[in-house]
Computed example of a mutant assay.
Amino acid sequence: MNPIMLDFPTEFTTDRLLIRWPLPGDGKVVYDAIVASRNELREWLPFAQKEQTEEETEVNLRESHAEFLKREDLRLLVFHKETGDFIASSGLHRINWEVRKFEIGYWIDTRHSGKGYMTEAVEGITKFAFKELEARRVEIRCDTENIRSRAVAERLGFDLEGILRNDAYDVKGKQLRDTCVFAKIK
């Protein structure tokens, strides 16, 4: 079956969070979170290396909206259920529909870190993948030195399947880094 024919929810909730696909107009809140978190994001994420405008962020989110519709990439935005505040960006990436394999990526607005939101969001997204998308495998990959990302995977019981040595360059393209591969399987 062509993945574009798959029907599944575009939003769901956890105890404190609303997690949904990106919609036109979300650029402002995501842009503000990137600006507030740039110092922390720069260390790990390529997109944070370059200052982007609010319009560029909006364009990126609209492209993510289209990719979600085409089932090519399932970016998800995380909001506080009660306040409506934007908290984080996550999603299911590097999708293999034949195998039903997904990789969760995530970053949090620094102003909301340390409150368990990212762990709650990743747990919710993992459950969504297994229940709604019939995932057989969900991965989290992160730099071995990214202690906070590793901690999320470990808290949620993802198995560390291995470390890929000299797997990728750092975000500045200067130093080879190792990558942890965590996974849960059905």
Rank of each mutant, 00 (worst) to 15 (best):
T53C: 11
I108P: 03
G116S: 01
S89T: 14
N146W: 07
K81C: 10
Y31G: 01
V30T: 01
A88C: 13
V122H: 02
V152K: 01
H80Y: 07
K81Y: 07
R148S: 12
P46D: 15
E145K: 11
R42Q: 15
C180S: 06
L92H: 08
D7P: 00
D7F: 03
V99I: 10
G105Y: 08
D143H: 10
V30G: 00
V29K: 02
N60L: 02
E123F: 03
K28F: 05
Q49L: 14
R111H: 15
F182G: 08
Y117H: 02
L133W: 05
I4L: 13
W21H: 08
E132Y: 11
K101S: 15
R42M: 15
I108C: 10
E54N: 03
V29N: 03
S149E: 00
K70V: 04
L45G: 09
G105E: 10
I95P: 00
V171H: 06
I4M: 15
S113F: 08
R94F: 13
V171M: 15
D167V: 00
I87K: 00
E40M: 14
D73R: 13
K131S: 07
E103W: 06
L164M: 15
F79Q: 09
D109M: 12
E82P: 05
E58W: 03
I147S: 12
D26W: 00
R75T: 14
V30A: 00
E67G: 00
D178V: 04
Q52C: 12
V138C: 05
M5V: 02
L41M: 11
E82M: 12
L92D: 08
V171G: 14
P22C: 01
K28R: 06
E145L: 13
F130N: 14
G173K: 06
R137G: 04
E40I: 10
E56L: 07
P24H: 04
G105N: 05
A88V: 07
G114K: 07
D159W: 02
R71Q: 13
I95V: 05
E55A: 14
F102T: 02
T10C: 12
R38W: 13
L69K: 12
I108S: 14
K28W: 02
V181E: 06
G84I: 09
T53R: 02
N2K: 04
L164G: 11
R62F: 01
R136S: 08
E40C: 07
R155E: 05
D15T: 11
S113G: 10
A153Q: 01
N166Y: 14
W21S: 14
V29H: 06
D15C: 03
A168T: 13
R75E: 15
G105C: 06
L164D: 11
Q175T: 15
A151R: 06
L18R: 12
N60A: 09
V59E: 04
R136M: 04
E132L: 11
V171E: 15
K101D: 14
A66E: 15
H80W: 06
G116I: 03
E51Q: 07
P24I: 01
